[in-house]
Computed example of a mutant assay.
Amino acid sequence: MARPPLRPSPGRPEPAQGLLRRLDGIARAALPPVTTAILLVLAAAPLGLPALVPAVVLPAVFFWSVFRPVSMTPPAVFALGLLQDLLTYAPIGIGILTLLVVHGLAFRWRRGLAAWSFLAVWLVFCAFAAGAAGLGWLLYAVLSLQLPPPMPALHLALLSAGLYPTLAFLMTRAHQAMQRAELDS
């Protein structure tokens, strides 16, 4: 009868068991909405760019709805929209409805979008940003019973489209790290 070695053999460590594995899964699932909320709060810092808050949350909701829809759920999108409305002093509901529409459409088309090149996804996002800015403008007009100037909506669409490549690069790295961690466990 051979004795077992005193040291464990080198190689892959044993996966976490029980509670630790569940906590790791919960943390990975919560990472997209939590980091988006942190970005929202950081974007709300007084920089003189009031459109920065919705311009940051829109790419994040779109990206995670396409590439990790399990983590970006409708309740999380609702909470992010509410946080956006509170941080921008917008009428409650405009950001919520806009983000839920973006999430729903991105979720519905995720299978096709996930297979496309970055440039094609970016162009689709540009259309989403223009549509979301137009929807926000329309909702504000309905709630205020007057036509607001269209330039803030245009700036929001352009700023969102311009921020998407940088934010998508960072979110892609986080997504790949989460996929590697899931494969290892």
Rank of each mutant, 00 (worst) to 15 (best):
A153D: 07
L123G: 13
R173T: 05
L52H: 02
F78M: 13
L23N: 05
A45F: 04
F169Y: 15
L6V: 09
A127V: 08
L47Q: 04
L49K: 00
L163R: 11
F78R: 06
A157M: 14
A130L: 13
G162Y: 13
L119A: 15
M72T: 06
L139R: 03
A132V: 11
A177N: 11
V53E: 03
R12W: 03
L100M: 13
P4E: 04
P91A: 12
L158H: 05
A181T: 02
L113A: 12
T73N: 09
P33L: 10
L83K: 02
P4D: 02
G93M: 15
D24H: 03
A45E: 03
R12V: 06
P4N: 02
A133H: 00
P149W: 10
P69H: 06
D85T: 05
T172I: 04
S185Y: 11
L135H: 10
S185M: 14
R110I: 09
P74Q: 05
T98V: 14
D85G: 07
A174G: 11
P46K: 01
L40I: 05
R22H: 08
E182H: 10
P69L: 09
P149V: 14
T88P: 01
T166I: 15
L159G: 06
L80T: 08
S117L: 04
G136P: 03
R180V: 11
A30N: 09
A55K: 00
G11A: 07
A161F: 14
F63V: 05
R68F: 07
P5G: 09
A16T: 06
P54C: 06
W116S: 12
F107E: 03
L42N: 05
L42W: 09
G131T: 07
V61W: 01
L86F: 04
A133C: 09
L6T: 05
G11P: 06
P69S: 10
E14T: 09
L20C: 05
E14Y: 05
S117D: 07
S144G: 06
G136I: 00
T172E: 14
A168N: 06
W122Q: 08
L138R: 06
Q84L: 15
M171K: 00
P32K: 07
A161R: 13
P148E: 12
G81S: 12
Q146L: 13
A44W: 01
A141C: 09
A76F: 08
R22S: 11
T73Q: 13
L138G: 04
W137G: 00
T88G: 01
P165C: 14
D85W: 04
A161G: 15
A55S: 10
D184R: 12
L42P: 01
L97Q: 08
P15A: 15
F67C: 01
V57L: 08
L52N: 01
V41S: 01
P50A: 04
R110H: 10
L145R: 14
L135K: 10
R180H: 13
M72I: 07
Y140V: 00
A129R: 06
F107P: 00
S117Y: 01
I38H: 02
F62L: 04
A37V: 02
L143S: 07
S185H: 15
G48R: 01
P32C: 10
T73W: 09
A16L: 15
I26N: 03
W122H: 14
A114T: 12
L87N: 04
L6F: 04
L87Q: 04
M72Y: 07
S185D: 15
L83V: 03
L158Y: 03
L158E: 09
L80E: 09
L158P: 02
L100W: 07
I92S: 03
